[in-house]
Amino acid sequence: MKKLFLLAAIAVFGITGLNAQGQFNGGVNVGLITGDFSDFYSFNITVDASYLWEVSDQIQAGVATGFSQSFGKDTDFGDAEDAQFLPLAAAGRFNVSDEFTLGVDLGYAVGINDGNDGGFYYAPRVQYAVSESLDVVLAYRGVSIDAGPVTVGFNTITAGVEFGL
């Protein structure tokens, strides 16, 4: 399943290179772990990349990927290993005004580290345009992980910047 998602992402990004009508964006974010894993992980660094096409004056749609690194804490149960995810997602953005944009990324986050199978990925976001090519981004990023009889959430709240390239 992971290989299928990775192959699909490579195909989508390969096709986007043929069409120069879109906008490529890159971003860097830092965040805090919330929810089920907050006792085991201290903070998060995420690097994002997206390619968006203009659907209308207010709506963009496209694909998104990146790399997420969450750093483990020293706990009573021992040291938690760092957790890494590679999200592969569809992306949508809605321009509320010239400065504010609401968006969401939906897809699958591939688990990179040992014992991490990944899960459903969702990332609602709010962006504020500082300039034509620089946005400040606040996002809630979640990965729903199937943990046997229950599903747990690996969730982060991040803040960062996004550059239009």
Score class of each variant (00 low, 15 high):
E132G: 08
A109H: 01
E132R: 10
R141A: 04
G62S: 12
D117V: 09
N116Q: 15
V136K: 03
Q58I: 10
G142R: 01
V55C: 07
G142S: 04
G148L: 02
T65N: 10
P87F: 02
T65F: 08
V104P: 00
Y128A: 11
D146Y: 06
S56N: 13
S131L: 01
L106Q: 05
V96T: 11
R93E: 15
T156G: 12
A90V: 14
Q84I: 12
A80P: 03
G111K: 05
E132L: 04
D74K: 00
D98H: 13
E132K: 13
D98G: 15
R93I: 09
Q127G: 13
S68A: 14
V143A: 07
V104C: 02
G111C: 05
N95P: 05
T158I: 14
S133Y: 14
V143R: 05
D114R: 04
D117R: 08
F154T: 04
F71N: 00
P149W: 02
T65V: 09
G78D: 00
T75P: 00
A129W: 08
A129D: 10
L88E: 05
E81D: 15
V130L: 14
A89F: 04
G153I: 05
Q69E: 11
D57L: 04
I59R: 02
G92I: 12
V96P: 07
A159R: 06
L86I: 15
F100G: 02
T65H: 09
G142Q: 02
A80Q: 07
Q69M: 10
G107H: 08
A90L: 15
A64P: 09
A147W: 04
S144H: 13
G118Y: 00
V126K: 06
G103W: 08
F100R: 03
A129T: 06
A123G: 09
F94T: 10
L134V: 14
G115R: 10
E99A: 15
G103K: 09
N95R: 11
G115E: 11
A129C: 08
I157L: 11
